[in-house]
Structure formats: C-alpha cells, structure tokens
Amino acid sequence: MTTLTAHDARALTWPQLLTLVWGRWLVSLTFRMIYPLLGFLAAGFAVDLTTASLLITVQVAASLFSPLGGIISDSIGDRATMIGGGIIFTLGAAICAMSAAFVPFLFGYAVIGLAIAVGMPALQSYVSARSHYERRARMLGVLELSWALSALLGVPLITWSVERWGIAPIFAGLTIAGGVMLISYIMLPNDDQTPSRQLHQSASANHLWHLFQQPSILTALGFVFIQLAAVELIFVSYAGWLNSAFNATTAELGFVFGLLGVVELIGSLSATLFTDRIGKRRAVLGGFLLVGVWLLLLPQSGSWPIFLALLLAFDLCFEFAIVSTFPLISGLSAQRRGALLAMMTAGIGGGRIVGSLAGPWISATAGYALTSTIAGILALIGFGIGLLFIKEGNA
C-alpha cells in the first residue's frame, strides 16, 4: 500500500487520511448546518429565534471542554479518544433524531458538541504524530479542507433535504453516518506506545498544568484567543452590516455565504500547499497581519464591490492563517501534543464566545465600522504578541 512518505513506516496512507477527512467533514457539517436552519428549527419547535440560537451557544461552549479531551487523549491514546468521541457523537445524533421538543433536541446537540470537543483534538494529534514536522502543514491542511467542503458540499444538500423531509430523518442519517465513522476509526492503526508516552500517561492532568506554566505555550494560546475574538466580531456582524449599508437581500446574503465557502476552500488549500514551504511561524504571522489590515480598511469601503472584495480578502487570509496555526502549535510539544491541541481548541472556542457576545453589542451601540476597527486593532495586537514571543517548534 502506498504511503504518503517512504521514510516513516508509521506515516498515514492515503486511505487512512481520507478516513480521517471523512470524520472531520461529518462533524464540521453537523456544526455548520445549524446556522441556516435556525429559522426552520425555531418554527418547528415553536420557539423564538433567540431561544433557537442556544443551539449555537451550546455548541461553541462545548469547545471549552477540549482540555478534558486532551487529558483523555494523552492518557489512553489518540485513536481510543477518537473512538470515544465517535460513540458520543452517534449518541447525540440519535437523541436529536428522536426529539419531539426543543429541550431534548438542545441536549442532544450539546452531546454532539461534547463529542467534537473530545474527538477533534485527538484526531489532529493522531495525524500530527504520524507526519514529519516538515510536512505536517500539508497533512493537517488536507484534514482542514473538510471545514470548507462541509459548507460547499454538505450544507446545501442538508437544507434542501430538511425542507422536504424534516429534521428528524436528517439526524437519523447522521446517526448512521456516525456509526460508519466509528467503525472506520476502529479500523485505523493504534497509537504507537513509545517509552516517553508510556512514562507520561499516568499524569496527564499534571502535564496540562505544566503546559500552563510554560510562557511560550501560554503566549501561543493567548494569541489564538485574541485572533479568534477579533475575527468573530466580524463573522457575527457582516450580515447585518451588508443589510444596513447596502440593503442586501436574503438571496444576496446567501450568495456572499457561498463565496465565503469558496474562499475558505482556497485558503485551506493554500495552507496545505505552501505553509510548509513558507515556514509555519511566518505563514501564521503574515496571515494574521493581513487579517488586521483588511479589517481596518473594511470601514473605508464606500461601495458594495469594494466591501465584498475586502470581506473576501479578510476571510481568505484568516482561513490560511488559522489552518497554518494547527501545525505550528502541534510542534511545541510531542509528549503533550493531544493536550496542547485541545487547549488550542478551547482557546478558539473562548475567543469565539467573547467575539460573538461583544460583536452584536458593539455594532448596536457604536456601529459596524467601529466593530471592524476594534477587530483590526485586536488582530494587530495579537500579531505583535506573536512576533515577539511565538517561536517555531519541531516536535
């Protein structure tokens, strides 16, 4: 069987990598499909839109449990944690499929969020452990393509299907898909139990505390938190901005969402192809520097085409930068990689929560232009922190 590299017997084969991409695509689809379905779910469960938006809140909040997944991953292994995450995902999808009221549906969706928080860092750690650092951005980049592909290839099909058959059959299908994902994880090779890993498995909680005591890792996690808080200010505001400034219709907003999906795919693909060549630290810092620049320029756009071009440029650079961040962070520690990537996921979730709560409030009280300006300043502050303190690893 052909492997991705002939220099390491542990390297992932293409079928194994595609198995992991499939799992990542499935959970990304389940995460992203809720956004366009909020109105449908609010009407179907007879709740208001604010109540229905709790689905997004519990999903994002679940990411704060990712350090728990990191502890588990470093204790029992990445593959075993992925299998556990697959079991939890399948259970959550089944609860949603059987729910006739909003509260049990919300509970089931929270269970899915927990599965993602536990399983995804382990999946990234599994790929990282089976790829050389010099080629890791390529491997993780292929994995992260599934995020953009879920919007382009999955969400339109889901919304079309929900309109015809309702939400319960969709989650019944996701339950079956979760079972397939679980079986595919069981068939993957188990983690290699190296002496260093066996030595550290008994004290993963202490290792997590040890990570927090390292200034370089704390700086990297703070960098991720600041950048995600900055960009989320825009992601939760751009639809209202387009509507108020340019009288965008629902169809036009849908068109913009589709363009953003294409741009995300291009950004992920660019990180896959070029981050290893550019250098991971250089790619991350350069990408987020441009994010800050585009956000500062966004309020200066006086026409729809210029605004759209700047918005797409911002999203392209962000996607390139965030995909490049995963291999950069993964290289900071080999023995504690699972916990480290889990903490990064928690940092992403924490930043998104802050941005999603602050964005609407700032926009309503001070305007969208100030929201973008604050986001740009935050992104540049994060860039400065990264430039001074983030170092290139090689683990």
Rank of each mutant, 00 (worst) to 15 (best):
A6W: 04
Q16T: 06
L17P: 01
L20G: 08
V21K: 01
R24K: 02
L26D: 11
V27G: 10
S28I: 11
P36W: 09
L38H: 08
G44F: 05
F45S: 11
T57N: 00
V58S: 04
G70N: 02
D78Y: 10
D78W: 02
M82E: 06
I83E: 05
A93N: 06
M98W: 14
G108A: 10
G119C: 03
M120T: 07
M120H: 09
V127C: 13
H132N: 03
R135Y: 05
A137G: 10
M139H: 04
V142D: 00
L145D: 00
L145E: 02
V155P: 02
T159F: 07
R164I: 13
A168G: 11
I170L: 15
F171S: 11
L174D: 09
T175G: 11
M181W: 13
S204N: 06
P215E: 08
L221P: 02
F223T: 09
L228N: 09
L228D: 02
A230G: 11
Y238G: 02
S244K: 04
L253Y: 06
V256A: 14
G258P: 01
E264A: 12
L265H: 00
S268C: 04
L269S: 05
A271D: 04
I278P: 08
R282E: 13
R282Y: 08
L289F: 14
L296V: 08
W304G: 01
W304L: 15
A309K: 01
F314Q: 10
D315H: 15
P327H: 13
G331L: 01
S333R: 03
A334F: 03
A334D: 10
R336C: 03
R337C: 13
L341A: 08
M344Q: 12
V354Y: 04
P360W: 06
A366H: 14
Y368E: 02
L370W: 12
T371D: 09
T371K: 08
G376N: 00
L378H: 02
L380F: 13
I381Q: 03
I385V: 14
L388V: 10
K391Y: 06
G393K: 05
